[in-house]
Design a protein around this nucleic acid. Structure first.
Lengths: 113, 113
DNA sequence: CTCCTTTATCTTGTATTGCAAGGTATATGG
DNA sequence: CCATATACCTTGCAATACAAGATAAAGGAG
């Protein structure tokens, strides 16, 4: 059991949520996720994931010049992506409900963290 | 993105939580998890997971006769298992906080489910 | 007794996905 | 030309959920 495993299938949703608000590029996205508290994850995670999401038509990308390096690839949500984000939110809420229900089963015995 | 992927590393914690309260056997555990709302998962998920947890010394097992079939293997938490359950709860709370923070970023735009 | 159903466990193989490690490309400054 | 920072990509590995199928024990029908 590790934090790694708990991220499976959840990072996707978080990325969709961030992109929805405004165009972002990969490097920037990684920084934002760190700000949100998702630590210890590398570019080896984020770039393959973005490419996968583009292949699934959840996002589109546009190259734009940067002032300080190679071109940035900005991502934007497609309609499919918005739908998928909504699906993720619903699944996440159900998951939270179920897991918290199971844990309440345990913490009711008195183990306030 | 699927429900399957979102379960990674989370099922472990839920199982530990259920076992903590009272000895249960695999088949029974599967039924309980379904009651808690975890649908669509099979014995091919639960038995390998229980064996893995036993190998990691998180649980111990005892065989007991059943009135209606082969022997049942009852599982019980070890001290390591209790510790791991506490670790899981902490990780789960952090994950919830982070993901909900990201989603608030999105839902603030007005999309009440 | 033999066959079938229900209960209960285990094994094998596959797909998904997070991540470390390492590689490539562009702009600026010495 | 070379070093550094920014930015992106590829390869290979490890963890794990699950479908499909095998095994085993007990009770009832014929």
């Amino acid at each position: 059991m590790s934090t790694t495993q708990m991220m499976k299938g959840i990072l996707d949703g978080c990325i969709l949520a961030i992109i929805k608000n405004k165009e972002v590029y990969g490097y920037e996205l990684a920084e934002k996720l760190e700000d949100y508290g998702f630590s210890n994850f590398s570019e080896g995670t984020i770039y393959p994931l973005l490419l996968r999401m583009q292949k699934e038509k959840l996002v589109t990308s546009t190259l734009k010049k940067s002032t300080a390096g190679p071109k940035r690839k900005y991502y934007r949500l497609t309609e499919n992506g918005e739908q998928e984000l909504q699906n993720f939110i619903e699944r996440w809420e159900i998951l939270q409900t179920n897991v918290n229900h199971v844990l309440a089963h345990e913490t009711k015995k008195g183990k306030g963290v």
